Simulated assay, not measured.
Amino acid sequence: MNKKLRMVSFVLLATLAFATQKESFVAAESPPTDVISMAPTYKDVVYATVTNDDGKKKELKMNIFKPEGVTEATPVLVYIHGGGWAIGDYQGDDAPKDAKKETAAPPNRPAQMTGRATDQVATDSAYQVFKKVLEDKIAFVSIDYRLSGEAIFPAPIYDVKGSIRYLRAHAKEYGIDPEKIAVAGNSAGGHLATELAVTSDIKELEGDVGGNLEYSSKVMAAVDFYGPTDMFTMGPEMDPTLQSPEEAAETHDSPRAAEAKLLGFDKEGQGVAVLRDIRDKKQTNSPYWEKVKLAELASPINYVSSDDPPMFIAHGGSDSLVSIQQSLRLRDTLNHAGVENIFMSNSKAPHGGQGEDVNNAAITWVTKKMLNK
């Protein structure tokens, strides 16, 4: 074999050896962690025991997910589920599946399939969207709160604030950074996330759920996916091209509405329309004036101030359950107060899945806030 041929053979052998070694190395690498299917690091953690309006006790729970391979204290994103304040719990998509029941809707399928507003409670997988923060070494916590059939407002915001205080009080135990807690929610959960973000200095809305009152319930950032912001205007603000005024009134102003149940004003002849009329006429001597004030307390639009944390707001332009005007007015109010915010709208998105671009933008935004990038 001449010198030139030997050199070519050596190069070929070296190339083959390197390629084989590279393939072996790639095969030996651990596959990326599938955070969506990850089990809770701390499961069914009881953060408070509360009393429902009927006197029964309830344990409020949370699931805590820590990113794999991280030993230092991590930021944490607290997720608040939607469901018209009436359904759902902290387990989200990680709830045990009943094999006898039909499988859940695909994650990206819009919630509003029938066209009826009353069937449009957001059941998209916002839970999975926000759980992805685990990929960025941020802890994910999904919390429970009392539903409207268990206790009326302000019970759910008391519960949410109690969960934040609990996490701060137990930060060392769970390996989280108590100074880097953000919140995210969709639909009713978006409402509670916003309410939490803008009412940190409102004693009437703090409560004492779970104790730990020496700790703050403030958050450093909030993500609101199509949440209500004003209890009084849900019906009147609905776009008539998406829902008729009559149906909007039934959905939001009647005693059968989710808002009426949240406020405990859901008997025949009651509903938000009655409260709006009392408020507009300033009938302070009405026996329902306290309910008017309760509806105001439940409307985060009333409490925006310059020291509120930055917010990311997403709302679909085709939402026929919660009018996009609820989020547009929140954006404008935040702007007027000088509070940093980002508003995104997928014009075709319903009350549910907002699309990959909006989801990714929200995760990127909250991740940068929490990691101070």
Rank of each mutant, 00 (worst) to 15 (best):
H191S: 06
D144V: 04
Y158I: 04
T41F: 09
A14G: 10
G317T: 10
P154D: 13
A139M: 09
V223C: 12
A273F: 09
I313D: 04
I202T: 14
L328K: 15
K172W: 00
L13R: 09
A104W: 03
M234P: 01
L371M: 11
Y47L: 06
A258T: 10
T367M: 04
Y90L: 02
E259D: 14
A295M: 04
Q21N: 08
I152F: 12
D119Q: 10
T251P: 00
T194V: 10
N341C: 12
A126W: 15
P240N: 09
S323Q: 03
S217V: 03
Y47E: 11
A99F: 11
A27I: 01
D332P: 01
S216E: 10
A295P: 04
A171K: 07
R165I: 10
T229Y: 05
S187T: 07
Q325K: 15
R109W: 09
S163P: 08
V129R: 12
P156V: 13
D136F: 12
E59H: 00
G88I: 06
L262G: 07
A295K: 11
D308R: 06
V76R: 01
E150V: 13
M238C: 04
D239C: 06
V274S: 03
V366G: 04
S217N: 14
N285T: 15
M311P: 01
G264P: 06
F25G: 00
I138R: 10
E247D: 14
T103E: 12
Q21L: 15
P107R: 13
D44G: 03
V198Y: 02
D308G: 14
S320N: 14
T114D: 08
L167Y: 08
D357Q: 14
I80F: 05
D357H: 02
V339S: 06
Y303V: 05
Y174E: 11
V339Q: 07
L242C: 05
H336I: 03
I80M: 02
K267V: 00
A193L: 06
F65Q: 04
T114R: 12
L192E: 11
L263K: 02
I202M: 05
K56T: 15
G82S: 07
A337Q: 15
K57D: 12
S148E: 13
A86G: 11
K368L: 04
F25V: 14
S286N: 15
A39H: 07
R168K: 14
D93S: 14
I164G: 11
W365I: 05
K97S: 09
R279T: 00
T33V: 15
L321I: 04
S216L: 03
E102F: 09
D266W: 01
P245A: 06
S254Y: 09
G190E: 09
F18G: 08
P106W: 03
T41V: 11
D266T: 02
D124C: 14
L321F: 13
M38K: 12
I313S: 07
A14L: 15
A73S: 13
G189Y: 10
D159P: 07
N63G: 08
A117L: 02
K291G: 03
K61W: 04
K180D: 02
P40Y: 10
